[in-house]
């Protein structure tokens, strides 16, 4: 299975452990992820006004660089931006002409744009993954935290049921964890408000953490570096046991018995295989 891979800037910095563990797992699963040459930041947020063409240059350049091969990302935000930019290129001819003429590339919306979780579910299959689990996460109570960008808008993202998604729970089940379902798993963490309005992000984070805790979770998984940052940094001290936050790929690598490190948003490191 061969894919082009778009890392995005955060995966080369703060979220390096998401990349390292996903790459290790992919290699062991026979999933070839070939990093694009000279890629640049996707812009992190999709421009919601259709005349914001400048913000589309980078994602469209990336889409064109994949040259029709399936394009995979790990970061929820990168995937969101690429997938929506592709949909715009398919739907809006005027925007497509302007952007591709400016970039001097040929692109008309072709190619599959996938999140790595979709590769695991749809191309590899979770049953196949089961065979590769060497150290199941037995007795670990883990909840999935989806956030916004993978699910919405569902007509474009086509990732899972936007109100009742199952992909991350199915992954956790495959990894042998005790799956905990929390009602706030699809709520927003506050996103970039942690930059300008930290108090608002603290409220959203508190609801997500409380809801996971009440459901009995000891840990959360996410596919978004900003979600992880907010969940780890914007939560208020409430005297209760903190909830660990992991990238989904860190637990994947751990259950596959692969070495790797989990890097928290505070820079703390932990060997994944030794937990």
């Amino acid at each position: 299975m061969r894919y082009r891979y778009f890392p995005g800037c955060t995966l080369k910095g703060q979220a390096k452990s998401m990349e390292d563990t996903a790459m290790a797992a992919a290699a062991a699963l026979g999933i070839e992820l070939i990093e694009l040459d000279e890629w640049q930041c996707c812009g992190a947020v999709y421009p919601l006004y259709e005349d914001e063409l400048i913000s589309l240059l980078s994602p469209v350049r990336t889409l064109a660089a994949a040259a029709g091969e399936p394009l995979v990302s790990l970061c929820s935000a990168c995937h969101h931006v690429l997938k929506r930019a592709q949909e715009l290129m398919q739907r809006n001819q005027d925007a497509r002409h302007k952007v591709t003429d400016f970039l001097e590339v040929e692109y008309s919306g072709e190619g599959r744009v996938l999140h790595f979780l979709e590769v695991l579910r749809d191309d590899l299959g979770f049953d196949k993954l089961t065979e590769m689990i060497k150290k199941p996460l037995e007795g670990r109570k883990v909840a999935a935290y989806y956030g916004c960008l993978l699910l919405r808008p569902s007509k474009v993202m086509q990732f899972d049921d936007p109100e009742n998604p199952t992909i991350m729970e199915d992954l956790l089940k495959t990894l042998g964890a005790e799956v905990v379902k929390s009602p706030y798993r699809t709520e927003c963490c506050g996103a970039y408000l942690s930059v300008t309005e930290e108090g608002v992000a603290s409220d959203t984070v508190a609801r997500i953490i409380d809801s996971a805790r009440q459901a009995g979770a000891e840990a959360l998984i996410t596919a978004c570096p900003l979600c992880r940052y907010n969940l780890e940094n914007c939560s208020r001290e409430d005297g209760k046991e903190p909830i660990k936050v992991y990238y989904f790929s860190e637990l994947l690598a751990e259950a596959m018995g692969l070495p790797g490190e989990s890097t928290g948003a505070d820079g703390s490191k932990e060997e994944v295989a030794q937990r």
């Binding site: 995005g8 800037c9 955060t10 910095g13 703060q14 979220a15 930041c41 812009g43 992190a44 947020v45 421009p47 913000s55 970061c75 935000a77 996103a191 970039y192 942690s194 930059v195 300008t196 978004c224 570096p225 900003l226 992880r228 940052y229 940094n233 948003a265 505070d266």
Partner: peptide
Amino acid sequence: KLPQQALVSGFR
């Protein structure tokens, strides 16, 4: 502390 993604989205 802020991840790159937060800075880019904030500025955007």
